[in-house]
């Protein structure tokens, strides 16, 4: 009899423990979902606002779904919103950003790969010093270089041009691209280069036949990192561009802050989404590599 009570008590307390555990679990999920809402809210508001008419924005609530979906704001943002005196929407600037980002990403990645290969696998005296100097160069606040850079671009005849911006992004991007490739190649045993040397292969042959085929993951990480950095750049864009060559971030800021006419929040939001779309897309498609780049770019060495 007493045995029986003890047993039921045990079961009871175990059940109690289970109930507590399940309750905690639920609490955990509720918390996590609340946080998810916090992170999603701005995106949600941006999207819904961009699909509303101005009339509805003025009368309705910020977080309400649009009663009537309209894409007018999107087409305005894309092709006719005013960025100062010009009223051609984001489209030309979106292309500017592509024309800047694509070559800059390609050039800085190629240079980073070669530099990283040299530093990690062909170590010579002073290579570590060079690496430290390059690494530190990617940490400076760029404010400290924009004044002389503006003058040098002027002297080279590149002031306010897209090649000028490509140049700037390459120069200040190679620190990071070198870091990425160096840290990747440094994990590859040096014996591989030795074996290939004995096999008769030279510097470029070894890079091309042995290291490059190994590098796909780090190329993806680097390309994504560079693309995100360059696409999202604002400081260089606003400092070194002129009316026709501004990147999309500068144009977005101009649309939002243009004082002419009625404040068209829906157009602002549509423009913001358009400007964010390429990098968001990259993030959604290749998030794993994006995160790897972020962590590699911060946990250094």
């Amino acid at each position: 009899m007493s045995d029986f009570t003890v047993a039921t008590q045990a079961i009871g307390s175990r059940r109690q423990g289970n109930v507590k555990r399940i309750a905690l679990r639920w609490l955990l999920y509720v918390l996590l979902c609340l946080f998810a809402l916090y992170y999603l809210l701005p995106l949600f508001v941006m999207i819904t606002t961009s699909l509303k008419s101005l009339e509805e924005i003025r009368t309705g609530s910020l977080v309400a779904l649009p009663r009537e979906i309209t894409f007018d704001a999107w087409s305005t943002a894309w092709s006719s919103a005013c960025t100062g005196i010009q009223c051609e929407g984001l489209r030309p600037f979106f292309w500017n950003s592509i024309l800047i980002a694509v070559p800059a990403v390609v050039i800085s990645t190629v240079l980073g790969a070669l530099n990283g290969y040299v530093i990690a696998q062909w170590r010579f005296r002073g290579a570590n010093m060079i690496f430290s100097l390059m690494l530190f160069g990617s940490f400076i606040p760029f404010q400290v270089v924009i004044l002389p850079m503006a003058r040098v671009l002027g002297m080279m005849g590149l002031a306010g041009t897209i090649p000028g911006l490509i140049f700037v992004h390459v120069v200040y991007g190679i620190g990071f691209t070198t870091l990425f490739f160096r840290n990747y190649y440094v994990t590859i045993p040096h014996e591989l280069v030795k074996a290939a040397k004995v096999d008769g292969a030279g510097f470029f042959r070894i890079f091309w036949s042995i290291f490059l085929p190994l590098s796909l993951p780090i190329i993806v990480v680097t390309v994504i990192w560079q693309f995100t950095q360059i696409w999202n750049d604002f400081l260089f864009g606003i400092s070194f561009s002129q009316a026709g060559t501004q990147p999309v971030t500068v144009a977005l800021n101009n649309i939002v802050n243009s004082t002419t006419g009625v404040k068209a929040y829906n157009v602002d939001m549509a423009a913001a989404i358009i400007a964010a779309l390429p990098t968001l897309l990259v993030y959604v498609v290749a998030g794993k590599y994006f995160i790897r780049g972020l962590t590699a770019g911060s946990v250094k060495g």
């Binding site: 992170y39 701005p42 995106l43 508001v45 939001m269 400007a275 968001l280 994006f290």
Partner: peptide
């Protein structure tokens, strides 16, 4: 994780614009 991290993929200009509106 994807949801918590996506803001990092966006330009600070976009972030600023969104919060300015909110």
């Amino acid at each position: 994780r994807t949801i918590y991290l996506y803001p990092m993929a966006m330009s600070l200009i976009v972030t600023g614009t969104a919060w300015k509106w909110i």
